[in-house]
């Protein structure tokens, strides 16, 4: 049994218009596994994670099933509350924003251990210092007495990671944890996350735009487009040869030093506006390989060549000619 089992998960937002942000996602996360979710902004990556832990915005509703260690997390009465923190930790994109501004860092860290694990305040405070050392925050003991605004962005992100780890989760959701940081710090934080997962035996779901991050960290990659997973594959296979045209486009648009002189490769067109209705393949309007069938028939996510792909005309799995 996988640690986390997501089945037919759909997320809708009500408002002036009903918007479906996530549209039927199936995904398993194994113990101590690292899975990356990639895709453009608005593809539903973050909402997928938020839905799992019951933290959708007030006008959001999740359908389908999410099980953590066999326990259903969706439904009435916020059943996900039981796994938040201790079961599933969450690191947000805006780390500075995820620290409470009027509480000292040490107090926030200790509180997370006390409230979720039932630790004593005394042991939790000692734990807080150890955790700050673990996320390589310089002068960890002194930092405990400081307030979030006294730290730099990179330090705040380290504290945010430490905070998420204090309840000792088995699974960590990291939603673009490096986007808000300086490029120089990004690599450090990614390496830190990888090391922490290894040391603590923690599974990791990493949402990112950065395929470079993916390459160094994830065992599997899920590519999301317009609320669906369009390709799910081993990271190594995907980076060598993506099968979905969208995945291939994402990979091709990663700037490389060799190609730095020419214009940057991009995927033509723009992602569909939220709430768009689809008849055929969601990617068809932007796809170079699209044919008549793609306009009318929605491709299912089917197995093939070490992964799943939702495309009528996937790219070849073998080395490209």
């Amino acid at each position: 049994m996988a640690l986390l089992e997501i089945r037919r998960l759909a997320v809708d937002f009500t408002g002036p218009r009903r918007v479906r942000a996530v549209d039927g996602v199936d995904l398993d996360i194994g113990r101590e596994e690292c899975v990356a979710i990639v895709g453009e902004s608005g593809s539903g990556k973050s909402q997928l994670l938020l839905a799992c832990v019951g933290l959708l915005a007030a006008n959001g509703r999740a359908q389908g099933s999410v099980r953590f260690e066999g326990r259903e997390l969706l439904g009435a009465g916020d059943p996900a509350a039981a796994v938040r923190g201790g079961g599933i930790g969450f690191v947000f994109q805006d780390a500075g924003g995820s620290l409470t501004p009027h509480l000292r860092i040490g107090d926030q860290l200790a509180e997370a251990a006390v409230a979720v694990r039932g630790a004593s305040w005394q042991s939790a405070r000692a734990d807080a210092v150890r955790m700050l050392e673990r996320v390589q925050l310089p002068a960890a003991a002194q930092q405990c007495a400081r307030y979030p605004h006294e730290l730099s962005g990179g330090m705040r992100q380290r504290v945010a990671i430490a905070l998420a780890l204090m309840p000792r989760p088995q699974l960590l959701f990291a939603d673009e944890p490096t986007t808000a940081l300086d490029v120089t710090v990004q690599a450090d934080v990614v390496a830190l996350l990888a090391a922490l997962c290894r040391d603590l035996g923690m599974a990791l779901v990493l949402v990112t735009h950065d395929l470079g991050v993916v390459a160094s960290l994830a065992a599997r990659i899920a590519v999301m487009y317009a609320g669906r997973i369009v390709e799910l594959a081993d990271a190594e296979r995907f980076l060598r040869q993506p099968r979905h045209p969208y995945g291939a486009g994402l990979l091709a648009s990663v700037p490389t030093l060799a190609a730095a002189a020419g214009p940057m490769a991009t995927i033509a067109g723009a992602p569909p506006a939220p709430g768009t209705a689809f008849a055929g393949c969601r990617f068809e309007p932007r796809c170079g390989r699209a044919e008549a069938r793609c306009r009318v028939e929605d491709p299912a996510l089917v197995a093939g060549d070490g992964g799943l792909v939702a495309c009528h005309f996937p790219l070849d799995a073998g080395p490209q000619p």
Partner: peptide, 20 residues
């Protein structure tokens, strides 16, 4: 966002409300 983060950490509703 830090209220959402506090809830994501698994803090009970009471603590989120009164302390954060």
């Amino acid at each position: 966002p830090w209220i959402r983060a506090a809830r994501a950490r698994g803090l009970p509703q009471r603590a989120v409300l009164l302390r954060h």
